[in-house]
Design a protein around this nucleic acid. Structure first.
Lengths: 266, 266
DNA sequence: AAGTGGTCTAGACCACGAT
DNA sequence: TCGTGGTCTAGACCACTTA
């Protein structure tokens, strides 16, 4: 293939494949032609084809199942379910997580917990009011459903706050860590929530077994005492391909609510 | 560099650079060594270095400012603002967007609108209850702040519904398109909202001037009449590097709300 | 054993912006 | 004009899974 106009050849190949995917000619789960096949078909070197395929992978459209080949990604993350009954977008009562999940369709929930002393990242240090690199207590959780990692739920505590408490033991604390915090003299009076979207770190990619091209939503929750002392910082990481918010509104008001999401602006 | 253990060389180089970035040794805005410099420093071919840098770009950590060089990304998307007063996560009154923005800090909002007849994508077709490829009316908007694209707000209408109405003119409809819909006999009684996260399409990358490695949040809102006839489908696309939700909770209840985000599950 | 994608090299030419 | 990254080639070897 020659380079018409100024579009790189690998782009043209990527566009061609993308079109086949979005038109359904290459259905979800279907195998792409092999790299050598594509190379000879387009009359280019294998590296050029690889560049095209890599782009589709980074877009989340294609996955590599080495060494079987490349395949059109199956579970596009949006599970459209218009029949659903009303369900609030974010429900404030939770960590009945385990209980809730078991009730649904016989899916089996699971979680791994570990507790460690770690150096605070910039992100955590800023929120806990300590210096970056300072030692803090990390209570790290990965939740899964049917064996598939589902989200990361890591909470960081200033060492001075939780020293010697139950929080430092790597077991499930049934009554909730915030309850423990209150019992040891740091009742939570306020919380600050931040939600944003980014690409995962390699560590997150590993812990959540993410495919390349999968972004994550991050929900950071920082708790404070009435005096404004930060007592904990929880980082939730939600894989973009395993979470969809679906909710329904019944009232005919809110003329132009379409744009409400634009409201979530910093 | 030799390949110790089984970690590919380009991974080792990427890890090394990532460490320098997260430690602050390579500060935001700083220029990375040139590819040739990195290649000779590590004793590898230029392509190997390019692979390492490409990974950092796809993680959103590094941007290329061709042909000046590679730079550590400056605006990490999280703008931490703990002093903020209470602000609900998603406010239901809006499209005072324009008015609101002008009030803040003298930032100038803008928008471009165009109306076109297009073939419905699978996503839109499914929600509007038409066949994929069928012609629908697209009312496409890109909003910007200070000249920077800020979000995409595209609404799709079944041709039969809006034929000949004001909606088909590419001007701002001051009283809102839903009002027009009501006037022509299709008052909205219900709406279904879906929110998810993914990598942008090339088209979105272009319209929003996105850097590689920037995911987007998508908010799809489908409106129905009381009879269940879909009348419109609005697709909001929000760049992950330009939006942060920040809100504060004051009540000390909700013991373990940390995990509420896990609730937003499909 | 065969065939896939993953890694890596050495070299080439181009496009573009700053100098 | 120079130096940067962007594109592309031809070829090599490896790791892994499946048949």
């Amino acid at each position: 293939m020659r380079r018409r106009s100024s579009t790189p050849v690998y782009q043209q190949i990527a566009d061609h494949l993308r079109k086949q995917i979005s038109s359904g000619e290459l259905a979800p789960g279907a195998q792409l032609p092999t790299e050598l096949e594509l190379a000879s078909r387009h009359g280019v070197a294998r590296q050029t084809v690889r560049q095209a395929v890599a782009q589709l992978v980074s877009e989340g459209l294609v996955v590599s199942q080495r060494p079987r080949g490349h395949f059109v990604r199956e579970r596009t993350h949006y599970r459209y379910s218009p029949q659903r009954e009303f369900q609030p977008p974010v429900s404030p009562e939770m960590d009945r997580f385990m209980g809730q999940i078991t009730l649904e369709d016989g899916r089996v929930p699971g979680q791994t917990i570990d507790v460690a002393l770690v150096q605070a990242s910039h992100e955590v240090a800023q929120r806990l009011g300590v210096e970056p690199g300072e030692i803090v207590v990390a209570r790290r959780r990965v939740r899964s459903i049917d064996g598939e990692p589902f989200n990361i739920n890591d909470t960081f505590y200033p060492l001075a706050v939780v020293q010697g408490s139950e929080i430092m033991s790597p077991a499930d604390v049934a009554r909730g860590c915030n309850q423990v915090l209150a019992e040891i003299g740091y009742p939570q009076a306020r919380a600050l929530d931040e939600i944003y979207v980014r690409m995962p770190t390699p560590d997150e990619t590993h812990r959540l077994a993410l495919e390349p091209g999968t972004p994550v939503a991050v929900h950071v929750c920082t708790g404070y005492t009435a005096n404004g002392v930060p007592t904990r910082c929880t980082v939730n990481v939600l894989p973009g391909d395993r979470h969809v918010i679906v909710y329904e509104r019944h009232r005919p008001d809110h003329a132009e609510v379409d744009s409400e999401a634009a409201q979530i602006v910093g």
